[in-house]
Protein backbone atom coordinates (compact mmCIF):
# COMPACT_ATOMS: atom_id res chain seq x y z
CA UNK A 1 0.00 0.00 0.00
CA UNK A 2 2.76 2.40 1.04
CA UNK A 3 4.85 1.24 -1.89
CA UNK A 4 1.99 2.05 -4.25
CA UNK A 5 1.67 5.51 -2.74
CA UNK A 6 5.39 6.09 -3.13
CA UNK A 7 5.45 4.93 -6.74
CA UNK A 8 2.42 7.12 -7.47
CA UNK A 9 4.09 10.12 -5.86
CA UNK A 10 7.36 9.72 -7.72
CA UNK A 11 5.48 8.96 -10.94
CA UNK A 12 3.48 12.15 -10.58
CA UNK A 13 6.62 14.20 -9.99
CA UNK A 14 8.60 12.63 -12.81
CA UNK A 15 5.56 12.90 -15.10
CA UNK A 16 5.25 16.61 -14.39
CA UNK A 17 8.97 17.00 -14.79
CA UNK A 18 8.90 15.15 -18.12
CA UNK A 19 5.90 17.10 -19.32
CA UNK A 20 7.48 20.37 -18.37
CA UNK A 21 10.80 19.36 -19.83
CA UNK A 22 9.16 18.46 -23.17
CA UNK A 23 7.28 21.75 -23.30
CA UNK A 24 10.33 23.81 -22.31
CA UNK A 25 12.58 22.03 -24.78
CA UNK A 26 10.10 22.52 -27.61
CA UNK A 27 9.50 26.15 -26.72
CA UNK A 28 13.24 26.78 -26.54
CA UNK A 29 13.55 25.17 -29.93
CA UNK A 30 10.82 27.38 -31.35
CA UNK A 31 12.42 30.46 -29.80
CA UNK A 32 15.80 29.41 -31.20
CA UNK A 33 14.28 29.01 -34.64
CA UNK A 34 12.70 32.44 -34.35
CA UNK A 35 15.97 33.92 -33.16
CA UNK A 36 17.85 32.44 -36.07
CA UNK A 37 15.61 34.48 -38.39
CA UNK A 38 16.46 37.77 -36.70
CA UNK A 39 19.20 39.61 -38.54
CA UNK A 40 21.14 42.86 -38.22
CA UNK A 41 21.49 44.75 -41.52
CA UNK A 42 24.57 46.83 -42.36
CA UNK A 43 24.45 49.54 -45.06
CA UNK A 44 27.59 51.08 -46.52
CA UNK A 45 28.76 54.66 -47.28
CA UNK A 46 27.85 55.96 -50.74
CA UNK A 47 30.42 55.26 -53.43
CA UNK A 48 32.19 52.54 -51.43
CA UNK A 49 34.22 50.09 -53.53
CA UNK A 50 33.51 46.37 -53.82
CA UNK A 51 36.90 45.66 -52.24
CA UNK A 52 35.96 47.77 -49.21
CA UNK A 53 32.65 45.94 -48.88
CA UNK A 54 34.46 42.62 -49.04
CA UNK A 55 36.97 43.75 -46.38
CA UNK A 56 34.13 44.81 -44.06
CA UNK A 57 32.47 41.43 -44.63
CA UNK A 58 35.64 39.58 -43.72
CA UNK A 59 36.04 41.57 -40.51
CA UNK A 60 32.42 40.98 -39.50
CA UNK A 61 32.73 37.28 -40.26
CA UNK A 62 35.50 36.95 -37.66
CA UNK A 63 33.18 38.00 -34.82
CA UNK A 64 32.11 35.26 -32.38
CA UNK A 65 28.49 36.45 -32.29
CA UNK A 66 28.05 35.90 -36.03
CA UNK A 67 26.61 32.61 -37.24
CA UNK A 68 25.89 33.58 -40.85
CA UNK A 69 26.72 36.52 -43.12
CA UNK A 70 24.74 37.15 -46.29
CA UNK A 71 25.64 39.82 -48.85
CA UNK A 72 22.63 41.42 -50.55
CA UNK A 73 23.57 43.47 -53.64
CA UNK A 74 21.67 46.65 -54.60
CA UNK A 75 20.00 44.71 -57.44
CA UNK A 76 18.90 41.90 -55.15
CA UNK A 77 17.61 44.41 -52.59
CA UNK A 78 15.53 46.17 -55.28
CA UNK A 79 14.17 42.92 -56.71
CA UNK A 80 13.14 41.80 -53.23
CA UNK A 81 11.50 45.15 -52.49
CA UNK A 82 9.59 45.09 -55.78
CA UNK A 83 8.38 41.57 -55.19
CA UNK A 84 7.19 42.26 -51.66
CA UNK A 85 5.81 45.82 -51.96
CA UNK A 86 5.14 47.18 -55.45
CA UNK A 87 3.01 44.62 -57.22
CA UNK A 88 1.41 46.16 -60.36
CA UNK A 89 3.16 49.52 -59.90
CA UNK A 90 6.56 48.09 -60.58
CA UNK A 91 6.61 49.20 -64.22
CA UNK A 92 6.46 52.92 -63.30
CA UNK A 93 10.09 52.75 -62.09
CA UNK A 94 11.43 51.56 -65.43
CA UNK A 95 15.10 50.52 -65.19
CA UNK A 96 15.84 52.82 -62.26
CA UNK A 97 17.03 51.30 -59.03
CA UNK A 98 16.12 53.60 -56.10
CA UNK A 99 18.09 51.27 -53.82
CA UNK A 100 21.31 51.62 -55.81
CA UNK A 101 23.20 52.60 -52.67
CA UNK A 102 21.49 50.03 -50.47
CA UNK A 103 23.62 46.92 -50.94
CA UNK A 104 24.07 45.41 -47.47
CA UNK A 105 25.10 42.55 -45.23
CA UNK A 106 22.46 40.56 -43.38
CA UNK A 107 24.10 39.25 -40.22
CA UNK A 108 22.59 36.31 -38.29
CA UNK A 109 23.68 35.71 -34.72
CA UNK A 110 24.49 32.67 -32.54
CA UNK A 111 22.78 34.28 -29.57
CA UNK A 112 20.41 37.16 -29.95
CA UNK A 113 21.26 38.55 -26.53
CA UNK A 114 24.63 39.60 -28.02
CA UNK A 115 22.97 41.93 -30.51
CA UNK A 116 23.77 45.15 -28.62
CA UNK A 117 27.51 44.40 -28.53
CA UNK A 118 27.56 43.51 -32.20
CA UNK A 119 25.67 46.63 -33.28
CA UNK A 120 28.05 48.80 -31.29
CA UNK A 121 30.97 47.18 -33.08
CA UNK A 122 29.38 47.47 -36.53
CA UNK A 123 28.64 51.17 -36.07
CA UNK A 124 32.30 51.77 -35.27
CA UNK A 125 33.48 50.24 -38.55
CA UNK A 126 34.78 52.55 -41.26
CA UNK A 127 32.62 52.54 -44.40
CA UNK A 128 29.43 51.65 -42.51
CA UNK A 129 26.65 54.20 -43.01
CA UNK A 130 23.82 52.66 -41.02
CA UNK A 131 22.99 49.57 -38.94
CA UNK A 132 19.43 48.24 -38.70
CA UNK A 133 18.59 46.06 -35.74
CA UNK A 134 15.47 44.26 -34.50
CA UNK A 135 15.71 45.48 -30.95
CA UNK A 136 12.19 44.64 -29.82
CA UNK A 137 12.06 41.14 -31.29
CA UNK A 138 15.51 40.38 -29.94
CA UNK A 139 14.74 41.60 -26.45
CA UNK A 140 11.39 39.88 -26.34
CA UNK A 141 12.73 36.51 -27.47
CA UNK A 142 15.67 36.68 -25.09
CA UNK A 143 13.39 37.64 -22.22
CA UNK A 144 10.87 34.90 -22.97
CA UNK A 145 13.65 32.33 -23.15
CA UNK A 146 15.13 33.46 -19.85
CA UNK A 147 11.70 33.57 -18.20
CA UNK A 148 10.98 30.00 -19.29
CA UNK A 149 14.36 28.93 -17.97
CA UNK A 150 13.80 30.50 -14.55
CA UNK A 151 10.20 29.30 -14.22
CA UNK A 152 11.11 25.77 -15.22
CA UNK A 153 14.05 25.72 -12.81
CA UNK A 154 11.81 26.94 -10.00
CA UNK A 155 9.06 24.43 -10.68
CA UNK A 156 11.53 21.56 -11.00
CA UNK A 157 13.16 22.49 -7.69
CA UNK A 158 9.78 22.65 -5.94
CA UNK A 159 8.80 19.28 -7.42
CA UNK A 160 12.08 17.78 -6.26
CA UNK A 161 11.59 19.05 -2.72
CA UNK A 162 7.99 17.79 -2.64
CA UNK A 163 9.08 14.38 -3.96
CA UNK A 164 11.81 13.97 -1.38
CA UNK A 165 9.45 15.09 1.38
CA UNK A 166 6.77 12.63 0.27
CA UNK A 167 9.08 9.65 -0.11
CA UNK A 168 10.66 10.52 3.20
CA UNK A 169 7.20 10.43 4.79
CA UNK A 170 6.38 7.15 3.10
CA UNK A 171 9.61 5.56 4.29
CA UNK A 172 9.02 6.93 7.81
CA UNK A 173 5.58 5.28 7.83
CA UNK A 174 7.18 2.07 6.56
CA UNK A 175 9.74 2.21 9.35
CA UNK A 176 7.00 2.81 11.93
CA UNK A 177 5.05 -0.19 10.64
CA UNK A 178 8.17 -2.35 10.83
CA UNK A 179 9.50 -0.87 14.05
CA UNK A 180 9.13 -4.15 15.92
CA UNK A 181 11.09 -6.03 13.28
CA UNK A 182 13.76 -3.33 13.26
CA UNK A 183 13.97 -3.46 17.05
CA UNK A 184 14.49 -7.22 16.93
CA UNK A 185 17.14 -6.83 14.24
CA UNK A 186 19.00 -4.30 16.35
CA UNK A 187 18.88 -6.48 19.47
CA UNK A 188 20.16 -9.47 17.54
CA UNK A 189 23.16 -7.42 16.43
CA UNK A 190 22.31 -6.23 12.95
CA UNK A 191 24.52 -3.36 11.79
CA UNK A 192 23.05 -0.03 10.74
CA UNK A 193 23.84 -0.93 7.14
CA UNK A 194 21.91 -4.21 7.33
CA UNK A 195 18.93 -2.49 8.94
CA UNK A 196 18.88 0.45 6.55
CA UNK A 197 19.75 -1.41 3.36
CA UNK A 198 16.25 -2.86 2.70
CA UNK A 199 14.67 0.59 3.10
CA UNK A 200 17.23 2.27 0.86
CA UNK A 201 17.03 -0.55 -1.69
CA UNK A 202 13.25 -0.35 -1.60
CA UNK A 203 13.45 3.43 -2.06
CA UNK A 204 15.73 3.06 -5.09
CA UNK A 205 13.53 0.39 -6.68
CA UNK A 206 10.39 2.44 -6.06
CA UNK A 207 12.18 5.46 -7.53
CA UNK A 208 13.14 3.47 -10.60
CA UNK A 209 9.61 2.15 -11.12
CA UNK A 210 8.15 5.56 -10.31
CA UNK A 211 10.37 7.13 -12.99
CA UNK A 212 9.83 4.44 -15.63
CA UNK A 213 6.02 4.49 -15.63
CA UNK A 214 5.65 8.20 -16.50
CA UNK A 215 8.32 7.87 -19.21
CA UNK A 216 6.18 5.26 -20.94
CA UNK A 217 3.13 7.50 -20.55
CA UNK A 218 4.99 10.56 -21.84
CA UNK A 219 6.23 8.60 -24.87
CA UNK A 220 2.69 7.86 -26.08
CA UNK A 221 1.18 11.16 -24.98
CA UNK A 222 3.92 13.17 -26.70
CA UNK A 223 3.50 11.32 -30.00
CA UNK A 224 -0.28 11.84 -29.90
CA UNK A 225 -0.06 15.51 -28.96
CA UNK A 226 2.51 16.32 -31.64
CA UNK A 227 0.42 14.46 -34.22
CA UNK A 228 -2.70 16.35 -33.11
CA UNK A 229 -0.99 19.77 -33.13
CA UNK A 230 0.59 19.15 -36.53
CA UNK A 231 -2.80 18.22 -38.03
CA UNK A 232 -4.89 20.80 -36.19
CA UNK A 233 -2.51 23.73 -36.79
CA UNK A 234 -1.06 22.65 -40.12
CA UNK A 235 -0.90 26.30 -41.18
CA UNK A 236 1.70 26.97 -38.48
CA UNK A 237 3.88 24.00 -39.38
CA UNK A 238 6.61 26.19 -40.86
CA UNK A 239 6.73 28.25 -37.66
CA UNK A 240 6.18 25.52 -35.08
CA UNK A 241 8.66 22.75 -35.65
CA UNK A 242 8.43 20.26 -32.78
CA UNK A 243 11.30 18.11 -31.62
CA UNK A 244 11.15 14.38 -32.30
CA UNK A 245 10.50 11.95 -29.43
CA UNK A 246 14.08 10.67 -29.83
CA UNK A 247 15.46 14.19 -29.31
CA UNK A 248 13.34 14.61 -26.18
CA UNK A 249 14.05 11.14 -24.76
CA UNK A 250 17.80 11.15 -25.38
CA UNK A 251 18.11 13.47 -22.38
CA UNK A 252 14.80 12.93 -20.58
CA UNK A 253 15.23 9.16 -20.04
CA UNK A 254 18.60 9.27 -18.22
CA UNK A 255 17.66 12.45 -16.35
CA UNK A 256 14.27 11.04 -15.23
CA UNK A 257 15.79 7.70 -14.18
CA UNK A 258 18.56 9.43 -12.25
CA UNK A 259 15.92 11.71 -10.74
CA UNK A 260 13.74 8.78 -9.67
CA UNK A 261 16.65 6.80 -8.25
CA UNK A 262 18.03 9.96 -6.65
CA UNK A 263 14.72 10.84 -5.01
CA UNK A 264 14.31 7.23 -3.84
CA UNK A 265 17.83 7.06 -2.46
CA UNK A 266 17.90 10.48 -0.83
CA UNK A 267 14.43 10.21 0.70
CA UNK A 268 14.92 6.70 2.03
CA UNK A 269 18.54 7.06 3.14
CA UNK A 270 18.04 10.26 5.14
CA UNK A 271 14.83 9.00 6.72
CA UNK A 272 16.28 5.58 7.53
CA UNK A 273 19.34 7.26 9.03
CA UNK A 274 17.17 9.55 11.13
CA UNK A 275 14.70 6.96 12.40
CA UNK A 276 16.86 3.90 12.81
CA UNK A 277 19.22 5.09 15.49
CA UNK A 278 18.00 2.53 18.03
Amino acid sequence: MFSLATVATISACVFLFGLFYSVVLNFSNIVRQAQSGVAVTVFFDEGISDEEIQRIGEEIGKRAEVSKLVFVSAEEAWESFKRENLGDYVDSFGDDNPLAEDSNYEIYMNDISMQENLVEYLESLEGVRQVHKSAMVATMLTSVNMLIGYVSMGIILILLAVSIFLISNTVAIGITVRREEIGIMKLIGATDFVVRAPFVFEGIILGLIGASLPLIAIYFIYLRVIEYLSERFAILNSLLQFLSIQEIFSTLVPVALILGVGIGFLGSFTTARKHLRV
Binding site: E180, I184, I188, G189, T191
Partner: peptide, 22 residues
Protein backbone atom coordinates in the same frame (compact mmCIF):
# COMPACT_ATOMS: atom_id res chain seq x y z
CA UNK B 1 30.96 3.47 20.17
CA UNK B 2 27.67 3.38 18.30
CA UNK B 3 29.10 1.46 15.35
CA UNK B 4 30.52 -1.21 17.66
CA UNK B 5 27.18 -1.91 19.38
CA UNK B 6 25.95 -4.52 16.82
CA UNK B 7 29.05 -6.67 17.25
CA UNK B 8 28.74 -6.39 21.03
CA UNK B 9 25.07 -7.45 20.96
CA UNK B 10 25.94 -10.56 18.98
CA UNK B 11 27.53 -11.84 22.16
CA UNK B 12 24.17 -11.64 23.93
CA UNK B 13 21.08 -13.76 23.40
CA UNK B 14 17.88 -12.15 24.56
CA UNK B 15 14.39 -13.41 25.38
CA UNK B 16 11.43 -11.21 26.32
CA UNK B 17 8.12 -11.77 28.10
CA UNK B 18 6.17 -10.85 24.95
CA UNK B 19 8.28 -13.17 22.71
CA UNK B 20 8.83 -10.47 20.02
CA UNK B 21 8.47 -12.85 17.10
CA UNK B 22 7.87 -11.67 13.55
Amino acid sequence: RHRKIPRYRRGLGVVFQDFRLL
